[in-house]
C-alpha cells in the first residue's frame, strides 16, 4: 500500500471538491471491502482517499416521489431490515446471497455498484484487460469465471456487482455528483456501466471527481422480482453467475419484464430477447426455461467457461420462477 491523504468531508459538495483534486487521482472510500484490497495490492494508487461515510446525506433510505431513495453509503444490513424496501425482493435476495455478516455490515450499495472486477488476472496486476505482449491472457488462459456474453472486445472479465442486476430489473436510476461541487445528474443504472476497450476507460461512466450519491427506485407496486445467485458453496463467495428478474403479470400474462444477468458479461447484461419472448405469455416452468435459453442464445463462451452458458440459462429460469413464487427445488 502506498501513502495517501485521507479526507472525510461532511457534505456532497465538499466530497466533490476533494475528489476533483490531484487531477482526479483520488479514490472513494465507502465500506472499503473492495478498496482496501485494491490498495494493499497496489492495484489502485490514489493520492487521496475520500471517506464518504462522514457525509450524512449519503446514508439512509427515504421515501421518494413514487418510490424510494437509497443513500449510496447505506450499509447492506440496514437495507435488509428497512421496511421501505420490503417489496424490492431482487435487492433483498442479492444481500442475502452475500452470506457474510462482515460484508453485509461493512459493505454499501454504492460500493457494490462500483466494485472492480474480480478477474484473477486483474487482481494479480495484469490490468483490467489482462493483456500481455498485446495478447489477452484470458482468451486462452484460465477463463472459467469469465464472460460468456459481451466478450468480443478486449474486456473478458465479468461485472462484479451483485446488486446491479436486481436494481436494474427494478428500474433503478443512480444520482451522480461531481466533478463540480454543484454538478449532479440522474441516469438509469444500466447506462452507468461500460465495457472498456482500453485500460483507462474503467468499468463505469464515472469521471474523475464523480461519485454515486443515491439510488432511486420506482414504486415496486405490481412488480414481482427476485435475484437467483448460483453459488458453489454456502459461504462468502462470488456467484458463478446470477440473474435478476422484475416481472409484471396481468390477467395471467406477463405485461412487462426485465431480466438481467450478473457475472456473465463485463456489464450487467440485460436479456432483452428473453424479456420479449415472455411478454404476453403466461409465466410458467416452460416459458421460464424458454426465456433462459433465449437469454444465452447469443453467448460466446471462452475456452473453459462453456458450463456457464447452461448455468446462466438456469439462473434466468429460476429467477423468473422465484419472482413469481413458483420455484421448487434447486440447491
Amino acid at each position: 500500500m502506498r501513502p495517501f491523504e485521507y479526507a472525510s468531508p461532511e457534505t456532497e459538495a465538499e466530497a466533490a471538491d476533494l475528489l476533483a483534486d490531484h487531477d482526479g487521482n483520488t479514490a472513494v472510500l465507502a465500506g472499503g471491502t473492495d478498496l482496501l484490497t485494491l490498495l494493499k495490492r497496489d492495484l489502485v494508487t490514489p493520492q487521496r482517499v475520500v471517506d464518504l461515510k462522514t457525509v450524512p446525506s449519503l446514508v439512509g433510505v427515504t421515501p421518494d416521489i413514487d418510490g424510494v431513495r437509497i443513500g449510496a453509503l447505506t450499509p447492506l444490513d440496514e437495507l435488509q431490515q428497512n421496511p421501505l424496501l420490503a417489496g424490492y425482493q431482487s435487492l433483498l435476495d442479492a444481500i442475502d446471497g452475500i452470506r457474510s455478516v462482515q460484508i453485509q455490515s461493512m459493505g454499501t450499495v454504492g460500493g457494490d455498484l462500483c466494485h472492480l472486477p474480480n478477474c484473477w488476472y486483474f487482481r494479480s496486476g495484469h490490468g483490467l484487460l489482462a493483456m500481455e505482449n498485446g495478447e489477452s491472457l484470458v482468451e486462452t488462459g484460465e477463463n472459467r469465471y469469465h464472460a460468456i456474453l459481451g466478450n468480443h472486445g478486449p474486456a473478458k472479465f465479468v461485472s462484479a456487482s451483485r446488486f446491479a442486476p436486481g436494481l436494474i430489473s427494478l428500474g433503478a436510476r443512480v444520482r451522480i455528483a461531481g466533478p463540480g461541487a454543484d454538478d449532479a445528474e440522474t441516469i438509469p443504472l444500466e447506462y452507468f456501466y461500460i465495457t472498456p476497450r482500453t485500460e483507462r476507460q474503467g468499468v463505469t461512466i464515472l469521471r474523475p471527481g464523480q461519485f454515486i450519491t443515491h439510488i432511486l427506485l420506482p414504486s415496486a407496486a405490481g412488480i414481482q422480482s427476485a435475484t437467483y445467485d448460483v453459488l458453489a458453496s454456502e459461504g462468502l463467495d462470488w456467484p458463478l453467475v446470477s440473474a435478476a428478474a422484475g416481472v409484471q403479470v396481468e390477467g395471467g400474462l406477463v405485461r412487462d419484464c426485465r431480466i438481467v444477468l450478473g457475472h456473465a458479461a463485463p456489464v450487467p447484461w440485460i436479456a432483452h430477447e428473453a424479456a420479449r419472448l415472455l411478454t404476453g405469455r403466461p409465466l410458467n416452468e416452460e416459458t421460464a426455461a424458454a426465456a433462459g435459453a433465449a437469454a444465452v442464445a447469443a453467448a460466446t463462451p471462452l475456452s473453459r467457461n462453456g458450463y456457464k452458458v447452461q448455468m446462466a440459462a438456469v439462473a434466468v429460469k429460476r429467477a423468473l420462477l422465484k419472482a413469481t413464487g413458483q420455484l421448487e427445488g434447486g440447491l
Binding site: 458453496s233 454456502e234 459461504g235
Partner: peptide, 20 residues
C-alpha cells in the same frame, strides 16, 4: 501461459464454510 499460481489467495482458493 504465465506459469503463475493464479488463485493463491483466500478469495479464489475455495475452502468450504460451516454451511457446506
Amino acid at each position: 501461459r504465465t506459469g503463475r499460481y493464479i488463485n493463491a489467495d483466500l478469495e479464489n482458493y475455495h475452502l468450504p464454510r460451516i454451511g457446506d
